Computed example of a mutant assay.
Amino acid sequence: MFVHSASAHRPIERLSQVIPAACPRLPDADAVLPYLRRMDAARTYSNFGPLLTAFEARLAERFETGTAVVTCVNATQALTLTLQALDLPKGGLVAIPSYTFVATAHAVVAAGLIPLFLDVDPEDWMLRPATVREALKQAPGPIAATIVVAAFGAMPDLDGWRALRDETGLPVVLDAAAAFDTARTADIPTVVSLHATKVLGVGEGGFLATTNAGLAARLRQLTTFGFRGARVSDIAATNAKLSEYAGAVGLAALDTWDSDRLRFLRTARLVRAAMTYLPEIRFQSGWGDDWVTSVCSVRLPDGSVGAIERSLQDQDIQTRRWWDRGCHANPAFNECPRGDLQVTETLGRSVLGLPFAVDMGEHEISRVAAALGSALASL
Results as ranks from 00 to 15, higher is better:
Ala377Ile: 10
Ser297Val: 14
Phe207Ser: 01
Met360Lys: 08
Ser366Lys: 14
His106Asn: 14
Val368Arg: 02
Trp125Asp: 09
Ala237Asn: 07
Thr190Ser: 03
Leu376Thr: 11
His328Cys: 13
Val271Lys: 03
Thr210His: 06
Glu134Pro: 00
Asn334Leu: 12
Ala370Phe: 00
Ile317Gly: 10
Thr197Asn: 13
Met39His: 06
Gly91Glu: 02
Val173Ser: 06
Pro189Arg: 02
Asn334Trp: 13
Ala329Trp: 12
Ala332Val: 06
Gln84Asn: 11
Leu51Asp: 06
Glu61Ser: 13
Gly348Pro: 05
Asp157Ala: 08
Gly286Gln: 09
Gly247Ser: 04
Trp323Met: 15
Cys327His: 05
Val132Ser: 02
Gly66Trp: 07
Arg349Phe: 09
Ala178Cys: 11
Thr76Ile: 07
Ser304Tyr: 04
Arg184Phe: 14
His363Ala: 13
Arg272Pro: 05
Asp87Asn: 08
Ile147Phe: 00
Gly203Asn: 03
Gln318Gly: 12
Leu170Pro: 05
Val292Gly: 11
Ala176Met: 03
Arg184Asp: 10
Val173Thr: 07
Ala85Tyr: 07
Ala150Val: 01
Asn212Glu: 07
Leu372Tyr: 11
Leu222Met: 00
Trp125Asn: 11
Phe117His: 08
Gln221Trp: 05
Ala95Gly: 02
Val343Lys: 04
Ala240Leu: 11
Leu81His: 09
Asp234His: 13
His195Met: 14
Ala150Leu: 03
Val173Glu: 08
Pro279Tyr: 05
Gly339Trp: 04
Leu300Val: 06
Asp302Phe: 08
Thr100Lys: 09
Ser193Glu: 04
Asp40Pro: 01
Pro50Glu: 11
Glu244Gly: 12
Asp121Tyr: 00
Trp125Glu: 11
Asp302His: 08
Asp359Ala: 10
Arg37Gln: 15
Gly339Phe: 02
Arg349Met: 13
Phe55His: 14
His9Arg: 12
Ala240Cys: 08
Gly169Arg: 01
Ala216Cys: 05
Gly141Met: 03
His328Leu: 09
His195Asp: 15
Ala110Lys: 14
Leu51Cys: 05
Asp40Cys: 09
Cys336Trp: 01
Ala268Glu: 07
Asp290His: 10
Lys241Pro: 04
Thr44Met: 15
Ala186Thr: 05
Phe48Thr: 11
Val358Phe: 04
Leu208Gln: 04
Cys336Asn: 10
Val108Ala: 03
Met126Pro: 01
Gly288Gln: 07
Asp87Glu: 12
Ser304Trp: 00
Val73Arg: 14
Phe333Tyr: 13
Leu170Gly: 05
Pro279Gly: 06
Leu170Arg: 02
Gly326Gln: 04
Thr223Arg: 10
Lys198Pro: 02
Leu83Gln: 03
Arg282Thr: 15
Thr67Arg: 06
Ala130Thr: 09
Val191Gln: 08
Lys137Ser: 06
Trp322Ala: 12
Ala216Leu: 07
Thr210Arg: 07
Gln17Tyr: 02
Thr276Arg: 14
Asn239Ala: 01
Ile188Ala: 05
Ala375Met: 10
Ile114Val: 15
Val3Arg: 15
Phe48Cys: 13
Ala41Gln: 12
Asp316Ile: 00
Ser16Val: 01
Trp291Cys: 05
Asn239Val: 02
Glu362Tyr: 06
Ala209Val: 02
Leu86Pro: 00
Asp87Gln: 09
Ala6Ile: 11
Val32Met: 03
Ile308Arg: 03
